[in-house]
Structures are given as C-alpha cells and as structure tokens.
Design a protein around this nucleic acid. Structure first.
Lengths: 169, 169, 169, 169
DNA sequence: GGATAATCGAGACGGTACGTCTCGTCTTCCT
DNA sequence: AGGAAGACGAGACGTACCGTCTCGATTATCC
C-alpha cells in the first residue's frame, strides 16, 4: 500500500487505531460509571490500558476526548429516523430521546455543563455543537417563514428539552 | 432576658458573622474573576483572609458556599419588581436580566452546570432551586388553566431563557 | 479563711488543685499509652476533662507538664531506699530500677530524648535534671577522692545505665 | 547483553540519583540549621528543590531519610582511622569525636532520641545501629576474655560517651 | 537490511489542591 | 477571676492528580 500523492510521507510508527478506540470507549464507560467530575486523565488511561503520555499526545483534556466520542455517535443517534425533514415535533421527540437515553446524549449534556464552568471547554463547544447544528437544519427544512433571529428560534426549540434533561432525574 | 426559653445556651465562642460574609463575598468575586472550575477551597479561604479549616467547618464544598451566596441574592434580584403577579412576559424579562446581568445569576448558572457534573451538587440543587421556585409561583399566579404537568410548564417557561444564557456569549 | 499577712491578696477564683492533678495524671497515662510523640496538648486536655486554654494558662508545652509530673515522683522513687549514702552500687541498682520500672523513669527518658530534639526542652532540663542531681550527691557521699571532673564522673556512673535504658527493649 | 539474567527489566523512568542525594543533603543541612523537631517533610522537599510526593515515594518519615543519610557517613567517619583493631581507647576517642564533631554523629544522636519518642523510629534503629555494630566489632577484636553479656559490655563502652554527648553542650 | 523516526507502556519528576490535624489565641457564657 | 467550650488564623500532614520527562520496546518508512 502506498501513500496518497501529495501527502507528506508518514515516517515512524503510525498511530494505533486500537488505542484511539480504547480511549474513546473508556471515556464513555467512565462517564456513566463515575460522572464527569470524578473522571480523570489518569483514570481514563488506566481504564483504556494505555500509557498516560499516549493520551496526552492526542488529546489535551478529558473534555476533548469526550467531545470526540460524542460527535461520532451524535450524528448517528440524532439523524437516525430522518423521517420527515419538515416535522419539528418528530425532531423534538428524537432530541428528547437522544438526551435522555443515549450515552452520547449524556456526554453532550456533560460537555454543555462543562463549557459553562471552564472557558477552554466553552471554546471547544462554540464551534461545533452537533445538537445545535441538527436543530438549525431542522428549522431550515420546516415549513413556515424563516425566523428573524436564528438563536432565538433554536433556544425556543431546544431550550425546553435541554432544561428538562438538565434538571430531570 | 439572656437566652430564649427552650434554646440551648450557646457555649463557646459564637460563629463570626464577619467570616461568613467574607467567605460569601470571596466566592462571588472569584467566580467572576476566575470561573467556577478554577475556583478552589484554598483560594476562597485566602481571598477571604480566613483559615482553611474555618471554611470547611461551615461548608463542605465550593458548591455549597456558592449556593448560599446565590439564594440570598436570588430572592432579592428575582422578586424585585414583582410588578404584576400575573404577567408572565414581565417574569420572563426579569429572569433573563437576572441570568444575564447579575452575579447571583452567574452563580445560579454555574450551580446548574455543576449539578450536571457532580452528583453531590445535584442533590444540593434538587431541593431548593430558587429560580424554579419563582417560576412555579409565577405560573400559579398567571391567569389561565393550571397546566397538567408542572414540570413541563416550567421547562417551557424557563428552558429557552436558561438555554440562551448557557450557550450565549 | 484569710490570706497570709505580707502576701498580696489573691483576688478572684484561686487555681484549682483538682485541675492541676488531673492534667499531671493525664500526661502520665498518655505517655504510657501512646508515647511522647503521639501525645498532644489537645489530647491531654481532653483526657484530663479540662479546657484547652486552662492547660495553656499554666504550662507552655507538653514537656513542661511532663517535667512537673516527673520531678515530683523522681525524688520519691529515686531516694526511696536511701540505704547507705556511700554505696555507689546500691545507687546504681536504684537508678536502673527507676529507669526501667517506674512511670517517672519513663517520663525522664522521654524528656532526656526530647531535650536532644528540641532546644526549648533542652533549656528546661539543663537546670534541673533530678537524676543528675541525685548522682552528684551520691558521688559526693561516696568514699574516695573527689574526681577532677564532675561531668566525667557522672557520665561514667549514669552513662551505662541510661544507655541501656535507651536502647533496651 | 542488555539486562542481567534473572533481573526484571527496569521499566519506566529510572529513579534519579540526583534527587536522592539532594534530599539526603537537605536533611543533613536542616538538622544542623533548625534541629530535628523543627524539620518537616515539606521543608526537606523545598530545601532539596524536589516535589513532596517524590520524597514520600522513597521514604515514609524524616527519620528514615536521616537514617539513610547517617549510615552512609557513619561507616566512613567511624571506621576511618582503624589504627589498631584491639585498642579500645582509640575506639573511644574515635566515637567521641564522631558524636561531637560530625554531621553524621549529630544525626545519630537525633535518631537515638527520636527512637525513644516514636516506636516507628525505634523499629528502624533496632536492626541497624551503626555505632553499636562498630562497638561490637571493636570488642571482639580487643584482647581479653569475651564478656558474658555483650549488651552490658556495649553499654559500658558506649554509655559514658553517648551520655556525655546527649547532656553536653 | 540497516538507519531513522514516531508510537507505545511504564513510571519518576516538580507542582498544587485536597481534606484533616494540631497548634496557640481568641471570645463567649457559666461558676 | 477561673474554667469549659469552641471558633479562629496558621500551617504541616499524607494523598491524588496534574502535565512533563525519560526510559526500553515496538513498528513503520526510507535509503
């Protein structure tokens, strides 16, 4: 197998995909078992059976790892049905299910909360919030006049769902 | 009269109100200056000019301190206007201003987020959420039929406001 | 009851002899039970059933308390037999028994050690070492020419006994 | 050949000899400057320019560090002359000089005292007392009949010297 | 096929917050 | 005034995790 034309030749041992997946799974598991606050870089490395430096080589913080683990699954879980692109009520039900019942939903809520407490995480989430992106798309596809302020519309659509998930049991 | 009847005589040196206020103010200041995540019990004690053990004697975690600092101000800032008890739009504006512009609002958002990441904080907030309490009261006073599910009604009322505050700038 | 003529009238509540004895007994007990290092002012006060400030009012350190508890008993235990003032072998046996078998002996060894580690205790012991005093008296009463250097003579007399007690089981 | 047969391959970063020596020197210095009682694990780490955890990784207590610093030097300082193996008076002079004038001698006296106050230190010293070991060897080499009780002989030999050093200026 | 280079597991390193302990002082009420 | 109770500022305790570093071992590409 050859390297793609135009790519710098990758010298040295290539990154282990096994390690990447082991870390992402470890983060998912630990979030459920211990919660975000109790989760540590040390614990993640040990759970994944991986050296600590190896984790730091590819991610800077636990939030970054969780974000990567989250976006992969969020696309799948959220766009799952993809029933009627214009049905906002169906989208609402899908988001509610995502937040309440999936690992990726729990990760997303944790990241949303962490972004509130740590500016570094806020920067991470600012650009690529997968749920917000899905909401924007659903709003665009929905019939009716485009709202004046997209932010208000998203808040009206997602706000009650997210609030219920945050304060719910 | 020296001590109230039925009250145990207070033995030993009484708790210093000065210290209590210094700690609450320190927490308010540090939350604004450094953020919740960077705030530490050590830092709070030093900022308040108080021994570390003295802080631990009265509060277990920074969340507990912040909660006490928050509820005191929340009642004042939130119920301030109290213009028309039945005007939900006025209540919405008041909450939006509280979340966006007051120290107590910032504390409240931080606690809401921290509750998502730390089960201990969740327990703390479960019982006495001052904003939720105000929302329940506003809903009760508003004209119109009482909603079937109070939780849904609160989510519809506060959700967009809180979501906007969480994801806003 | 009246105050003695020529003495300043003792105003206020007089010092409680009960408290003094309770503290001295507590120190003796705690030395045996927990050892000198583990003994604390707080622990002494609690064991004696006495306020902490009350202990500090009359003594500055645990060494001072132990010293007072020691000298009272040392005189009794050491001069007990008082058989033949000139018999150095009898004195040796008496000292060995004192160091090995009495509470006051244990206290004395602890103070001797503490003096080595803490200059404040060293100052305390410099002046009034009860065992050294007894040894000097025994040497003076013994027949034979007075030694040139009293320090050497005391070291020759007490050294082996103290060393054995220090390193013994 | 890379690793000796039967030896486990040393994994991870090897222990820093620089750190070990820095800590031992810091202990020696602090004992002289501040005394044993005032010496703290925190202070040792700071003086050595070393993390606190690094000290705890290799030693449990300040006594353990001092012991390691002491035995290294004691062997050198004590067996230095080694003039006539059978000359007990020469040995006495060597020990007296060791106790009075060397850092290792001061460390030894501090450990001897600490062993009296703290059972953990006593256990540490019980096995490997370097001065006692030297004394046993000197006695064995000395002409004359072997004593009935080695403990008595050591006490007679070292007792006066140690006692003088303990109570001296 | 040997040199080069980046990855991996392991773990020591300096640093810092944790929550607990005792210190010695203080402030209150009670006797 | 003495004494018991207990809050106070201060600071060391031993532990945990932080992020960095330095090892030996492994696994790829390049010459």
């Amino acid at each position: 197998m050859q390297t793609k034309i135009g790519e710098a030749a990758a010298r040295g041992r290539p990154r282990s995909e096994t390690v990447r997946l082991a870390v992402l799974m470890a983060v998912d598991d630990l979030l459920v078992e211990e919660g975000y606050e109790a989760m540590t870089m040390k614990g993640i490395a040990e759970r994944a059976g991986v050296g600590r430096q190896t984790v730091y080589r590819w991610w800077s913080t636990k939030a970054e790892i969780l974000y990567e683990a989250c976006v992969v699954d969020a696309g799948r879980d959220l766009a799952a049905g993809a029933d009627d692109p214009g049905d906002l009520d169906a989208f609402r039900r899908r988001v509610a299910g995502f937040l309440a019942s999936t690992d990726a939903g729990a990760s997303y809520l944790a990241l949303l909360a962490a972004a509130q407490l740590d500016p570094a995480v806020a920067t991470l989430m600012r650009g690529g919030d997968p749920v917000r992106a899905a909401a924007c798309e659903a709003l665009r596809a929905a019939p009716g006049d485009d709202p004046d302020d997209i932010d208000d519309a998203v808040a009206a659509l997602l706000g009650p769902l997210v609030y219920a998930a945050l304060t719910g049991p």
